[in-house]
């Protein structure tokens, strides 16, 4: 399939995903709750300021199709370099916001994408990919000088505003929050620290997270989702993933009943996930995502 989405559905273990991101599902989600909350509030309130609404509307040469191809390629790139999903999301955001300020020729679009990835990894990662590597992945169509110059131009045009809230942040936040809520409510009064997920449960969780990330990746590449705030997309992606995974598990054999139970771990947050004001928006986004996912499953 085009996006590799279907493969993800069928293969039980995640493949081709960055190996880092240790399971933070269980680690320190209890202790750091208040810090996480304050961080979430700040990021959530910042979303609007970093939204690149209609970034293609005044681009003479860049079409949504071209953007889709470029972002799909960037998604492949971030996996190739084993950098975090955060870097990937940030790169797309940097690219989109630059497109709001500047028209770009079609033949420079790839350079823009790969330079945005460079900046994002410099901001997020310990080690960013070498410029040489990035250029060679563009078939050496561009020079180092062009890339460095564009890098500066992007930084200046964006006024160095790089701390954009990303899909990756909200994905991590919502999943660990739901999980910790469930764990606390299940084990109230008993020894909280003694509770650990079984191997089986962990792998289901991993799979769930990985699937939700897939949905997020698809939305990243599709220009139609450019208008939604990241937190809305993530909420939609999570509820859609639950839906799909549940259906999928039910259809397959009985040996998955354990996994199904684990999945219910995550159902607790369903109602509180949608706060009233953004409810209809989230529903709308979920439906659009569902369509997108089904399209990509068939192709």
């Amino acid at each position: 399939s085009d996006s590799g989405f279907e493969e993800e559905l069928q293969s039980p273990s995640p493949r081709g995903l960055p190996a880092e991101q240790p399971d933070r599902l269980t680690a320190d989600c209890h202790q750091e709750l208040s810090y996480d909350e304050s961080c979430f509030t700040i990021q959530k309130n910042n979303q609007l300021k970093f939204l690149a609404l209609g970034c293609l509307s005044r681009q003479p040469q860049i079409t949504p199709e071209a953007r889709c191809k470029l972002v799909s390629w960037l998604i492949a790139l971030y996996k190739h370099f084993s950098v975090s999903f955060e870097s990937c999301c940030l790169a797309v955001n940097i690219m989109d916001r630059f497109l709001v300020t500047t028209s770009v020729a079609a033949d420079c679009f790839q350079l823009l994408g790969v330079t945005a990835l460079l900046i994002a990894t410099k901001h997020v990662e310990v080690c960013s990919p070498r410029i040489k590597q990035l250029l060679s992945l563009c078939c050496n169509s561009f020079s180092r000088e062009q890339m460095c110059n564009l890098e500066c131009l992007i930084l200046v045009r964006l006024n160095f505003r790089l701390a954009a809230p990303t899909l990756a942040f909200f994905l991590d936040y919502f999943i660990s929050k739901e999980l910790s809520c469930k764990m606390i409510s299940d084990h109230e009064g008993s020894d909280y620290k003694g509770f650990k997920l079984t191997e089986d449960q962990l792998s289901t969780m991993k799979r769930f997270k990985c699937f939700a990330r897939r949905v997020c990746e698809l939305s990243l590449a599709d220009y139609a989702f450019n208008r939604y705030q990241p937190s809305v997309i993530v909420q939609s992606a999570i509820s859609l993933t639950k839906d799909l995974l549940r259906t999928h598990l039910k259809q397959s054999s009985l040996q998955h009943t354990n996994a199904l139970e684990t999945l219910d771990l995550l159902s607790i947050g369903d109602h509180e996930l949608h706060d009233s004001d953004s409810h209809s928006l989230t529903l709308q986004c979920t439906e659009e995502l569902r369509l997108l996912v089904s399209l990509n499953q068939e192709s």
Binding site: K69, S72, A76, S103, V104, A105, A106, C108, S141
Partner: peptide, 26 residues
């Protein structure tokens, strides 16, 4: 991806620098 991308975005061996700047300047 790479192939598709380059197919969809025909480009000459070296970029027309003028064109690039001009676009960026628009």
């Amino acid at each position: 991806f790479k192939r598709r991308f380059s197919l969809s975005v025909p480009r000459t061996e070296t970029i027309e620098e003028n064109e690039f700047t001009e676009q960026i300047n628009q």
